[in-house]
């Protein structure tokens, strides 16, 4: 991958699902002040992003974060990274489903029950697809959901 593809992948992974949900929620909690929160986040994320990229430049591997942790702290902690990811799935996957359903519900004037029914349907479809085909579409979007 060259620079434009790398940038496109990063932006897609980080921006993809977040933009559907986060600006609205932040605005609801903080009102106009949420703009300040976004500004400070833009600055605060730079050190972490650079750390991750320096690490991935030094240890190019498909293992991502768990590879770096394995290098620094050994297998035990690398496996813990895996467990943390697993623990995030029961939260992340339903959030994604509800987000998708909300976009339908705003258009169709659904009530809460219908929205959550649609979200459950999305989740069931995804789980069924994975159980039947057992071949995940590859990774883009995963880390945006996992928020690293």
């Amino acid at each position: 991958m060259r620079l434009p593809q790398i940038v496109a992948l990063y932006v897609g992974a980080v921006f993809g699902t977040g933009v559907l949900l986060l600006p609205g929620l932040a605005a609801e909690k903080a009102g106009p002040a949420s703009i300040l929160a976004w500004l400070s986040m833009s600055v605060l994320m730079v050190p972490m992003a650079i750390t991750m990229e320096l690490l991935s430049a030094r240890y190019p591997s498909a293992g991502g974060v768990s590879t770096f942790v394995r290098q620094a702290f050994g297998d035990r902690f690398a496996n813990m990274v895996g467990w943390f990811f697993l623990l995030s799935v029961p939260m992340g996957a339903p959030i994604l489903s509800v987000t998708g359903a909300n976009y339908l519900s705003v258009l169709l004037n659904w009530g809460e029950a219908q929205t959550y029914a649609a979200a459950a349907l999305i989740l069931i479809v995804v789980l069924t697809m994975n159980m039947l085909f057992r071949q995940p579409a590859c990774c883009s979007g995963v880390s945006s959901a996992g928020k690293q």
Partner: peptide, 13 residues
Amino acid sequence: ICISSANAYVGAA
């Protein structure tokens, strides 16, 4: 976007 992300997420898990 949501379905493909959820799918990738479950698959990765």
